[in-house]
Design a protein around this nucleic acid. Structure first.
Lengths: 211, 211
DNA sequence: ATCTTAACGGAACCAGTCTCCCATTAAGGG
DNA sequence: CCCTTAATGGGAGACTGGTTCCGTTAAGAT
């Protein structure tokens, strides 16, 4: 809603888009870094615009003007995270690739810093629609990066043709995130392994064939 | 942390435990109802102790004293929700029972009121350890109620003996909650159906046999 | 090099939240 | 039925987080 506010005022565009040179970019970097730090060691509820401005070494007016609110910060952080994509693996077998994927997700969620960030992001998305959209985009991007892995597996005949790649990938991630965010159980290597095995078993049975 | 505060003071116990007669119980009921209403139509970020007190027709001091903070309210609401258990189904086949379970979860998450409550609860749990524990307890309870359904299915030979009941149930719920809380995709009947089919396929393959 | 103005930053200001104090009500025991 | 005291309730005051104003800095154009 802050976003809307200054758009409807006399401002021609949202700040940072018209003159995104050195200073503006530096400010954004500092603020997003500070945001991630804050989320990592205090969580979303403790996210405070004022403190972010202080640790980023930036005027708090700037933070309020450009991001508007704590969820605004998280939303932009999410956009930033979506931009820096990391490539999918290629172990030669679908099972191997999915195992790598699951292990990557597990490592991220288990990592003290990244785990806290993801927790915060999920909480923020539960509070705000814009943030929810950014989160959805983030995962759409991530799943899209891994989809070719599944397609190749299908081409090799490891799973039936017509299997929906992202559907299989979701099946791998779901048990990990479910434990991480909902039941708050520990996400062990065992859980990741079982997620892969289960998803593959279902895929072989043709459960994920696109309708 | 509020909880701790008045425990360490001169108070002998937390309020409401020593004299839980008519009034105290009535206050709790009113406050928890108001909390659920507030979560349903404004979300967790908008949860406000002051307003809760007003709509519950209760002094705000009472709300602060007994619950301390918004997460405190949600935590207690969660305990309350865990207490009112609803029984598992018995359609005669494991597939049927799991389908009922998945459909129940889907209906809950899709329902405007309950969906909002669950979203809020997940957000709150991401912010606070006590609340996280309460959430974990809630699901431990729920899964425990449905475990017999799986055991009976195993006894009937629909899935291998030694299958971990709650593990199978988690596999059914995970894709629904993953979409609901993480990727924020729509939780359709189709998704629920596929979750059941996939979980069953994996179970038949012995993926969920207890180590 | 100079100019225009987008974007930043400091400080005062305002508002909504929480806390504390003390009077009032009623639960549970005799 | 009465007494003790747990628990509630109203209101004043403090505090923190957010907003606005206006002067300053430097990006991008000429």
């Amino acid at each position: 809603m802050e976003q809307e506010t200054h758009l409807t005022e006399s401002q021609p565009a949202s700040p940072g888009t018209l003159r995104p040179g050195g200073r503006t970019a530096k400010v954004r970097r500092a603020v997003l870094d500070a945001t991630q730090d804050a989320l990592a060691d205090a969580g979303f509820h403790a996210l405070n615009m004022d403190r972010i401005a202080a640790t980023a070494g930036v005027g708090k007016t700037t933070v309020y003007r450009r991001w508007g609110s704590p969820v605004g910060l998280v939303t932009d952080l999410l956009h930033d995270m979506a931009e820096q994509s990391l490539p999918a693996s290629d172990t030669g077998s679908l099972a191997g690739d999915l195992r790598t994927n699951a292990e990557l997700v597990r490592a991220t969620l288990t990592d003290a810093r990244m785990g806290a960030v993801f927790r915060a992001v999920i909480a923020a998305a539960a509070c705000d629609e814009d943030c929810a959209r950014a989160l959805a985009d983030f995962y759409r991007t991530r799943l899209g990066e891994w989809a070719p892995v599944v397609a190749k597996g299908a081409a090799r005949g490891e799973i039936p043709a017509g299997t929906d790649p992202t559907e299989l990938l979701r099946a791998v991630s779901a048990p990990l995130y479910y434990r991480f965010a909902v039941t708050r159980e520990e996400v062990t290597a065992d859980v990741a392994e079982r997620a892969v095995t289960a998803a593959l078993a279902a895929a072989r049975d043709g459960v994920f064939i696109r309708a």
